[in-house]
Design a protein around this nucleic acid. Structure first.
Lengths: 344, 344
DNA sequence: AAAACGAATGGTAGCGCTATCATGACAGCG
DNA sequence: CGCTGTCATGATAGCGCTACCATTCGTTTT
C-alpha cells in the first residue's frame, strides 16, 4: 500500500504525434512561449516567434486542437443545423456562412434534422458537447428541451431563415409578408381563383407562414384561398404531379401559388409538355428565385430571397459578437423581392 | 520561494457546466464507472447504469466531448472536404454520407476548397488537429504537402467521386469511361461534328477526364473533337451563353457534349427560347442525371451518376473500417448509366 | 536614486474526461 | 483448500494544451 510505485510510469502517448513541447524544446523556449508564438504572435519577441515557426516547419507540427479547446474552452467550431440538404435553399445559406466563417478561421460542424425537432435537440446536445463557439440553426421553432438547453447556453445563437423574436441573434425574412406580397400580385393581375400548393407544411412551416399571408390577403378581398398540401417534399417531380391534381380538384383555378420554385418550375415544365398555356390557361408563381425560374419559358414569377446573403450576414454578425464587439441589432431583416416573369 | 502556496488554489472552471464527477457523485459511484455507464453500458451493473442515467437526467449533464476526445484520442468526427457547394453533385454526396454517418453517431466537419488544392491542404491540417476519425475528400489529386501529411496519418482516408489508385479507400466512377460512353452514343446516333463544352477544366479536372474519353473515341474514328472551355463555373446561365458562342465558332456542329447537366439544360432551354430545334438543329448531351434533365422537353440525354449512393457507400465502408472490420475491397466502382432522352 | 511600470518569459496547475492497472468479491475446479 | 478466472468497481495518472500568476529585466517616472 505504501510501496512507491516508481515503475508504474504509464505510457499513454499512443501516436507519434509531434507535440508543442517538442517544438518548444527545439526552438529553445518554454512550451507556453511556443503556444503564444502560434496563437498571439505579437505577444512574443520576433526572435522567439521566428524560431518557433521554424521548429514547427521542420518537425511538421500539427496543433492538437482538441487539447487546445479543452484548455481554453474555446473551439472555433460553429455548429450549423439545417432541416434538409435536398432543398438547395439551405445549401446556399451554408455556403454564405462557410465562406465568411472559414476566412476567419472557424470550422463548420454540420447537422441535418430532416425537419425533425427532436433530432435537432439531439444535434444541439452533441454540438454543445464540442464547446462550439456559436450555433446557427434554421428557424425559430424548437422543442422545449432544446429551448431550455439553449437558453442556458452562454454562447451566441443565430437563428436564420425567418424573422421574429428569437433566442439571441436573428437574420431572416418575413415569410408571412412574402405570402401576402405574392397574393397581392396575383390579385392585381386579375386572378380570382388562386390555389396555394405546398408540401408538408407541418414540417416546412415557413411555407405554411407564406400560406397564412396569402390567405389573409385573399380573404380580406372576399376570395377563397384553397390549399392543396402534398405529402412529399418539394421537387420538380412533385410540382409536375401536382398540376393535374390541382386542375382536377379546382377546374376553375386561374393561378397556382406554389410554396417554392422547385414545385412551380416542375408544374410549369409539365404544363408545357401537356400543351397548356402559361399563364393563359393557368398562371404559376413560386418562391425563392432559383436560377431555373429565369430560364424556363415563360419566366417564372417568384419572390427572390437573398439566401447566400443571409448566410454571409449571419456569419458576419456572429463574428462581430465573437470578437467581443457590441451587436446593435439583434434582428436583421434581409427582405425579399417580387420578381415578375411571364408566368403570371 | 519555499512558501507553501496554500492559498494559490486556482479556480479555472469558467462555466457552471455539469461534469461527469458531479453525475458520479450524485449516482454514488466513481467517475470512471459513470464514464463506463455512458460509453460502455454493458460493462457496468444494471443498478449502477440506472442510477447514473438518472443523475444525468436530473442534472442535465451534457458530456464534454472535447475532454473525452483528448483522453481517448477518438473523436467521432469525420472530416468531409469538397471543392464546391454550388455544384449540387457534391451536396448529394454529402447527404449520402451524412445520413449514414449520423445514424452511427458520427458528426461531419465540413470544408470547402473552392477547387483549390492549397486550400485543401490547409483544411486537412486543421481537421487532423481535431483528431478526426476519418477523412473524406473529393478527388484523388492533392498537392504534395497534403499528400505527405495524409500518407503519415493513421486513420482511414476515403477519396470519392473518381476511381483510381488512391491513398487508402476509394469510391467513385470512371470519368474517362463516362466520356467515352457518351461519345460513342453520339457517334452511334449519326453525329459527326461534335463539340465538347466544359467549364474550368483545370479545376474541374474530372470534366477534363470525361473530355479525354470523348476525344479518344472520336479520334479513333477519325473525327475531330473540338473543345470549348468556359471560364465561369458551370451553371444554367453559362450553358445558355455558351450555345451562341459554340454555334458561331463551329457552324457545322451537329451535337454538343456538355461537361454537366447544368450547362446542358441551360443550353437546351436557351435553344428553346431561340426557336432552335433540339436535336434537329443541334443535339445536346450532359452528365450527372440531374432531375431537371427529365423535365425539359425534349428530355436530356445524360449519364446518370449515383451520387447519394456514392456517399452512402463511402460512409458504410468507413464505418466498417472504423469498427475494426477488415475491408476486402479498397476500391469501389459505383458505375454510371447512359440515360437516353430526346435531346440526341 | 528609488519607485513604478511594461514587455517578455516561464512555472505550475489544471481543463474534464478515459486508459491502465489494481483490487476485492465470488464462482468453478482439481 | 488453494488456485485460477471472471466480473464490477475504483485509484491514479495522464491526453496536449493554455489560464493564471510570478519573475526578470530594461525603461520610464517622480
Amino acid at each position: 500500500m505504501s510501496k512507491d510505485p516508481i515503475n508504474t510510469a504509464k505510457q499513454r502517448r499512443r501516436s507519434d504525434q509531434v507535440t508543442l513541447s517538442q517544438v518548444a524544446q527545439m526552438a529553445g523556449v518554454s512550451p507556453i512561449t511556443a503556444s503564444r508564438a502560434l496563437n498571439y504572435p505579437d505577444k512574443v519577441s520576433d526572435s522567439a516567434r521566428h524560431s518557433v515557426l521554424e521548429a514547427v516547419e521542420s518537425l511538421g507540427y500539427v496543433p492538437n486542437l482538441v487539447a487546445g479547446s479543452l484548455a481554453s474552452s474555446r473551439s472555433r467550431l460553429i455548429a450549423v443545423i439545417v432541416p434538409s440538404l435536398i432543398n438547395s435553399v439551405f445549401v446556399e445559406v451554408i455556403k454564405g456562412l462557410q465562406e465568411t466563417l472559414e476566412a476567419e478561421g472557424y470550422q463548420i460542424l454540420l447537422g441535418n434534422t430532416d425537419y425533425d425537432l427532436d433530432r435537432e435537440y439531439q444535434l444541439v446536445r452533441t454540438f454543445l458537447g464540442w464547446s462550439c463557439s456559436a450555433l446557427v440553426t434554421a428557424g425559430l421553432r424548437h422543442n422545449s428541451a432544446c429551448h431550455t438547453l439553449l437558453a442556458n447556453w452562454d454562447h451566441p445563437i443565430m437563428e436564420v431563415m425567418e424573422l421574429g423574436q428569437g433566442m439571441d441573434l436573428n437574420v431572416g425574412l418575413d415569410h408571412v409578408a412574402a405570402g401576402r406580397c405574392m397574393a397581392n400580385h396575383l390579385f392585381d393581375q386579375g386572378y380570382r381563383h388562386i390555389v396555394y400548393v405546398g408540401a408538408r407544411l407541418a414540417h416546412d412551416y415557413r411555407a405554411g407562414m407564406r400560406y397564412e399571408g396569402h390567405k389573409e390577403v385573399l380573404q380580406a378581398k372576399g376570395i377563397e384561398a384553397p390549399l392543396v398540401e402534398l405529402d412529399t417534399l418539394g421537387s420538380l417531380q412533385a410540382g409536375a404531379d401536382s398540376l393535374a391534381k390541382v386542375l382536377a380538384k379546382y377546374p376553375q383555378a386561374q393561378a397556382i401559388h406554389f410554396a417554392n420554385d422547385d414545385l412551380a418550375a416542375g408544374a410549369l415544365l409539365a404544363a408545357q409538355r401537356q400543351g397548356l398555356n402559361v399563364p393563359g390557361d393557368i398562371a404559376i408563381a413560386g418562391f425563392n428565385g432559383l436560377p431555373l425560374g429565369q430560364h424556363v419559358t415563360p419566366q417564372l414569377t417568384t419572390i427572390l430571397s437573398p439566401r447566400e446573403e443571409m448566410g454571409r450576414l449571419a456569419a458576419k454578425e456572429l463574428i462581430r459578437r465573437l470578437s467581443g464587439k457590441n451587436v446593435y441589432r439583434r434582428q436583421h431583416d434581409v427582405g425579399f423581392t417580387l420578381q415578375i416573369g411571364g408566368s403570371t
